[in-house]
């Protein structure tokens, strides 16, 4: 377990390094920072001055190491636009997006868990076909579109939920449903496949031969095994929701990280974009480590390896 965790940790650090370098390169190559700092009206001399003062004329690797050293101490630069420190700016937006991601995963799991189990134990029956068809359709619906349909239904026709902005918990209902609806089929398919596979194993036959009740066989013997890969996948999905909530935050005007990212992209505010990409990647990698830990706790083969 420790060896495995160590290996994963090393991998996570390497991934973080690569991503930080790639984003750094992208930012340096895609825009002239000097122009961004000085504005389009700046003269050639002024730009040269800016390059020297900000160290933009040094070799790229030196610039990166300089940037990385600052980043490690929490200094991710300043926004071109608002001149604020980037890190506090992002952290102030993070709770909204994190809440959204947690709720969406919650919705996804709440739908996938019972349906996945039912579909697997009633394999080939109508409930299985229904669950799979619903999953296939919902997986084909873009989340922004289901978001708009929800607005039409709950916000406009029924007028029970706020359609945009961030006021209270109710603001999260529709965005979470829209995202959770998109996440659920992925979880359902994996859980169903895992349950079907597990229910055909020798140890389930042993459990049946022991005369255990179907409930015990399914919940204790089968689910404990089938849920392991689902946990990993849920962690991956959570990480992807953090970076993928841009569109849904735009639809519902939620002031989260996604909205900040989108606005910053439109304003070419690259330090902010770069920091968000890096932060999302770090959270993603951390979530994966967490999933490995949980899997280790549930699976003795990993725990004692």
């Amino acid at each position: 377990m420790l060896a495995l965790l160590g290996r994963k940790l090393v991998e996570a650090i390497l991934v973080g390094l690569i991503i930080s370098f790639v984003t750094f390169l992208l930012v340096t190559w895609t825009g002239d920072l000097a122009i961004a700092l000085g504005g389009l009206g700046a003269s050639r001399e002024e730009l040269q001055q800016l390059r020297t003062t900000h160290g933009l004329d040094r070799p790229i690797l030196v610039q990166y190491l300089d940037w990385a050293a600052k980043a490690l101490s929490g200094d991710l630069g300043r926004s071109f636009f608002s001149k604020e420190d980037v890190l506090p700016l992002i952290l102030s937006r993070l709770p909204v997006t994190a809440t959204l991601a947690v709720c969406s995963i919650g919705v996804g799991i709440a739908l996938a868990l019972p349906l996945g189990i039912l579909a697997a134990i009633r394999q080939g029956r109508w409930i299985d076909h229904t669950a799979q068809s619903v999953a296939a359709v919902s997986q084909a619906m873009p989340s922004f579109w289901s978001g708009l349909l929800l607005i039409l239904l709950f916000g406009v026709n029924l007028q029970v939920l706020p359609i945009s902005g961030y006021e209270n918990w109710a603001s999260f209902v529709m965005p979470s449903l829209a995202l959770g609806w998109f996440v659920f089929p992925i979880l359902l398919r994996l859980l169903r496949a895992g349950m079907v596979e597990t229910l055909n194993t020798d140890y389930i036959r042993t459990a049946r031969a022991k005369g255990l009740s179907p409930r015990r066989i399914i919940l204790k013997h089968a689910l404990r095994n089938a849920v392991l890969p689902v946990i990993s996948l849920a962690a991956v999905q959570f990480g992807q929701l953090l970076g993928g909530s841009v569109v849904i935050e735009a639809v519902f005007a939620l002031p989260g990280v996604g909205q900040l990212a989108w606005n910053s992209i439109q304003r070419a505010d690259f330090p902010v974009v770069q920091a968000i990409v890096l932060l999302v990647a770090v959270i993603f990698v951390t979530m994966n480590l967490l999933a490995d830990l949980i899997n280790g706790a549930l699976d003795p083969r990993i725990r004692r390896a």
């Binding site: 970076g243 993928g244 992209i265 968000i276 990409v277 999302v280 990647a281 993603f284």
Partner: peptide
């Protein structure tokens, strides 16, 4: 690395 990158962003 690719998986950790927020592709849409």
């Amino acid at each position: 690395t690719r998986l950790a990158l927020p592709a849409l962003l």
